[in-house]
Design a protein around this nucleic acid. Structure first.
Lengths: 224, 224
DNA sequence: ACCTAGCGTTAACAAGTGTTAACGAGTGTT
DNA sequence: AACACTCGTTAACACTTGTTAACGCTAGGT
């Protein structure tokens, strides 16, 4: 029985493609095998897969080109590259395009499975609500829930809170967060961010175990 | 016996046109062969075909011009271009006009069949109703059904909802959708789109798991 | 030709969101 | 203590988006 996770596999070497496909199917993944980038793009469109495993070197359309196209319309889907070339340059290019991980050939099936599971888990983590203190925080829905009292957050508030929580109990650098969320670290954005910190503190005040502490000159630290 | 699928073929070179026509008829497609764009337009109007195969270079009216005209009144029908010119420029132009695929001459009949079937399958996928939350959404019929309660959507509503769903759980860029559905990103179209978002929210309000969230300055995100 | 219903656009106002300003409080330095 | 600087907080503001209704166009019916 399928675990409901659909993997799009693009690999031009038939025997390798088949081996990977079967190995994954044994683990209850649903696998769509394509032999080139163009076919893979069409299947991506029609099948709506959860994860992409792309060989970099393929005829007609290579994995990088394909990934670039898909990233334009889907910034979310995890992409794992398979690369025969072991040069660092390629790996860097892959990450720049928006690949989430890569695997050098030859690789063991176990390695592949581990990485796929890691990517899926990361994906799931992003989508699944989690607790911050006694609050339940849902990034997707942009909500904070406490005692079945649901408070809506704005997009900025939610993003900021997510980053604070990701680095909870560590100092989150002002400049880092400004560049990440505001795009630029300047005076006004910095003040704007302070306002948002203030708003978050207010919205989180019903659980005293959560605190957003200022580290003068460096940033903020959320303890929880 | 026909499989009930009607293909409009526009190809000015008589012998090639005839060969393609017969090859397709062997595969049980119904084929209407035209020798120029003007004739093809008339046949398109009267015959209501399921798919267009258009030669780009034709006398009187070329394939691109024809496709542009037809796209204005039908954004749905799959269009496959046959092009003798192999320049990328043409292919790009073709896709911008709204072509769904292209085939460089010379091509094998097998290639053509594969592409036609792929387009038809994709079309079929588009035509098949699917679930959005607990609703059943039918793009073709422009309906939303919940608990056997059928709500009609207008064309714009249906198109917008389809795009939101296609990129569900991702932010759909305002500008992208405006260009795609309204043709241009200007103030009034943007306001019009906001109105439609409002209408969709109202029509989707009976399933709370579906939400259309605004991402200020960027667009909308449908979560479901 | 006229009427009508349906649809998409435009207008108008309400609500929401992020930025900026202003002022006060806190912190470390001299 | 005086000072410079950073941060906290509130409110005003500008801008974006939400919502409703009026409007005009078009296709189909009479």
């Amino acid at each position: 029985m399928s675990n409901n996770i659909k993997i799009l596999l693009a690999e031009d070497e038939p025997s390798l493609g088949q081996i990977i496909k079967e190995s994954l199917e044994i683990r209850n993944f649903e696998v769509i095998l394509c032999v080139n980038g163009e076919e893979a793009y069409k299947k991506y469109e029609s099948e709506n897969p959860n994860l992409l495993v792309l060989d970099v070197m393929m005829p007609i359309k290579d994995g990088f080109t394909l990934a670039k196209e898909i990233r334009q319309e889907n910034t979310n889907i995890p992409i794992l590259f398979l690369t025969a070339k072991s040069q660092i340059k390629d790996v860097v290019e892959g990450f720049e395009i928006g690949g989430n991980d890569y695997l050098k050939k030859p690789f063991s099936m176990e390695e592949l499975i581990v990485r796929i599971n890691a990517l899926l888990k990361r994906q799931k983590n992003k989508d699944t609500p989690f607790n911050i203190g006694n609050y339940l925080f849902d990034l997707q829905k942009q909500t904070l829930e406490l005692n079945s009292n649901v408070e809506k957050l704005t997009h900025r508030e939610a993003q900021l809170l997510w980053h604070l929580h990701k680095k909870r109990n560590q100092t989150l650098d002002r400049s880092f967060i400004l560049k990440k969320l505001w795009g630029d670290d300047d005076f006004f954005n910095a003040r704007s961010m302070d306002v948002f910190i203030s708003k978050l503190r207010k919205k989180l005040k019903d659980d005293e175990s959560i605190q957003i502490i200022n580290v003068r000159g460096f940033g903020y630290k959320m303890i929880c």
